[in-house]
Amino acid sequence: MKDTSKENNYNLQFPSDLDYIPAMRQFIAEVARSEGYSTKFCFRTEIIVDELCTNAILHGSKGRNGCVILEAYFNNDIMKLCVKDGGGKKVNIENLKRAVYNSKPTADDTRGRGMDIVQMLADELKIDLDENGNTQVNIVKKRNMDDDEPILKPAENQNEGTEI
């Protein structure tokens, strides 16, 4: 039984470059796994980290040193994530809030659904400026009892030996 009474905090800083995201998202998902969260929770965490960091890199400002800051906090049954970029202009915040709260992509849209997915997967989402004027997106995700509910799948009939 994992001792969940202690807090675990992680603070990562990486260059504002998409190539760094796979390592970051996989690391946080692995931490969640080590904290005893379900496979489904960890996969969803990986997606949240990916989308937040991708958004910060593609739409955030390179800021003072061209870095993205990723903070993760695990305590009991709650995970908190914070992603900061060097944005800090009011227009950046307003654009991001508009993208998150007003964008309603349809099922056949090919782009612009990253933050929409985050909103669906997280329990709370907040966008603001930190004390240094950087754009920051905070999310809270709680451990749910239904995390490992079976997923509806097309009728399973995995025929490995199909002649093609």
Partner: peptide, 10 residues
């Protein structure tokens, strides 16, 4: 299952 979950979610 995990990928299908996200596809169904959206």
């Amino acid at each position: 299952d995990n990928i299908l979950d996200i596809i169904q979610l959206i």
